[in-house]
Simulated assay, not measured.
Amino acid sequence: MWLANLNRLPTKVRLASWGLNIQTACCFCSNQDESRDHLFLNCTYTTALWNRIFERLNPRRTAFLTWEELLSWLRVSAASAPSTLKKIATQSLFYNVWRQHNSAVHLNGFLPLQTTFNTIDREIRNTISARRHRRKFTTLMQLWIR
Rank of each mutant, 00 (worst) to 15 (best):
N51W: 12
E55N: 14
C27L: 13
L111V: 10
D33Y: 02
G109N: 02
L41P: 00
F94S: 06
L93Y: 04
F54P: 00
N42V: 00
P112C: 07
E69I: 07
N51H: 12
P82V: 07
R56W: 05
E34D: 04
L74W: 01
W98V: 09
L70F: 10
W73K: 08
F110N: 05
R75L: 13
L70I: 03
R36N: 09
S103D: 13
Q32H: 13
E68Y: 06
N102A: 06
R61D: 05
T90N: 07
W67V: 09
S80T: 13
V105I: 12
T84A: 12
V105Y: 03
D33A: 15
C29Y: 06
K86M: 03
T66P: 02
V76E: 14
C43A: 07
S30Q: 14
P112K: 05
N31W: 11
I53S: 05
L111Q: 15
W98D: 07
N108F: 11
T62Y: 12
L74T: 02
V76H: 12
T47L: 14
E68L: 10
S35M: 02
T84C: 10
W98E: 06
S80L: 14
E34P: 00
P82Q: 07
Q100E: 15
N102F: 03
P59G: 14
C26V: 06
S30R: 12
T90S: 11
H101V: 09
Y95F: 14
Q100H: 07
T44G: 02
Q114F: 07
T47K: 12
C43I: 04
L57P: 02
A104Q: 03
H38M: 05
L85K: 10
E55K: 13
E34S: 01
P59E: 11
H38L: 03
L111T: 11
Q23D: 14
H106K: 09
Q91A: 14
S83N: 09
Y95N: 06
A89W: 02
Y45M: 08
A79S: 13
L113F: 04
T90R: 05
H106R: 05
A81P: 02
L85W: 05
N102Q: 13
L74A: 04
W73C: 11
D37C: 11
Q100P: 07
L93R: 02
A104H: 04
S92V: 00
A25C: 12
E68T: 09
T44E: 08
N102Y: 02
Y45L: 09
A89N: 01
F28I: 01
A63N: 13
